[in-house]
Amino acid sequence: MFSRIIKIPIIFEVKKKAFKELDSILKANHLSYEEKILFTSQELFDLYKTYIPVETFSDVIFIKGGNVEEVESVKSKYEHHNVLLIAFGGGSIIDFVKLYSRELCLQYISVPSSLSNDAIYSPIARLTKNGKKESFGVLEPLGIIADIEIIQKSPLKMLLAGVGDLVSNLSAIKDWYLAESYDSEVLDIFSVSLSIVTAKAIFAYTREQLRSEEFVEVLTYGLVLSGLSMIIANSSRPASGAEHLMSHAIDELFPDRATLHGIQVAWAMLYIEKNIRKNDDAYESLLCFFEKIGLYAEIENDIQFSETELKRIIAKAKIMRKRFTVLNII
Results as ranks from 00 to 15, higher is better:
Arg102Gly: 10
Val186Cys: 09
Ser110Gln: 02
Val167Gly: 04
Leu160Gln: 13
Pro9Lys: 05
Ile124Asp: 05
Val54Arg: 11
Ala201Ile: 08
Ser168Ile: 10
Lys311Met: 10
Asp280Glu: 15
Gly227Pro: 12
Glu273Ser: 08
Leu295Cys: 09
Ser32Thr: 12
Ile151Cys: 08
Lys132Arg: 15
Val74Asp: 00
Phe2Val: 09
Phe88Gln: 00
Ala249Glu: 08
Lys322Trp: 03
Tyr121Pro: 00
Phe254Cys: 06
Tyr78Lys: 11
Val14Met: 00
Pro112Trp: 00
Phe289Met: 07
Gly90Glu: 00
Asp280His: 12
Leu106Gly: 04
Glu298Thr: 02
Lys132Thr: 15
Met246Gly: 04
Ser168Cys: 08
Arg323Glu: 10
Gly227Val: 00
Lys15Arg: 15
Gly90Val: 01
Ser114Ala: 13
Phe96Glu: 11
Lys77Cys: 07
Pro123Lys: 08
Glu134Trp: 03
Ser247Glu: 01
Glu217Phe: 12
Ala266Pro: 00
Asp175Val: 06
Ser110Trp: 02
Tyr283Val: 02
Asp188Asn: 15
Leu166Arg: 11
Ile150Pro: 06
Ala297Gly: 10
Phe96Gly: 06
Ile313Trp: 05
Ile319Asp: 04
Ile150His: 03
Tyr48Gly: 05
Leu228Arg: 02
Ile5Glu: 14
Phe88Asp: 01
Glu43Lys: 15
Ala239Pro: 00
Gln304Met: 11
Ile276Cys: 04
Ser41Arg: 09
Val71Ala: 02
Lys7Phe: 07
Tyr48Asn: 10
Ile231Cys: 09
Ser58Pro: 08
Pro141Tyr: 05
Asp183His: 14
Val60Pro: 01
Lys15Trp: 04
Val74Thr: 09
Phe136Ile: 04
Ser236Cys: 05
His30Pro: 04
Asp118Ile: 01
Lys322Ser: 12
Val224Phe: 12
Glu34Lys: 14
Ile330Met: 14
Ala315Met: 08
Tyr33Ser: 04
Gln107Leu: 11
Glu70Pro: 02
Gly164Asn: 02
Ser3Gly: 13
Glu180Ala: 13
Ala242Thr: 06
Trp176Val: 08
Glu72Pro: 06
Val218Tyr: 03
Gly131His: 06
Ser110Cys: 10
Val216Lys: 04
Val83Tyr: 03
Met246Thr: 06
Ala179Trp: 07
Lys49Val: 14
Tyr108Val: 11
Lys174Gln: 13
Met269Val: 02
Met320Ala: 13
Phe203Tyr: 15
Ala233Ile: 03
Pro141Leu: 08
Ala204Cys: 04
Ile5Asp: 11
Ser135Asn: 14
Tyr182Asn: 15
Tyr48Pro: 06
Lys98Met: 00
Phe203Asp: 05
Trp176His: 07
Phe215Glu: 00
Thr308Val: 13
Thr128Ser: 13
Glu217Leu: 12
Ser191Glu: 05
Lys322Cys: 04
Cys105Lys: 15
Ser76Tyr: 14
His30Arg: 15
Tyr296Met: 11
Asp175Gln: 08
Gly131Met: 06
Thr259Asp: 06
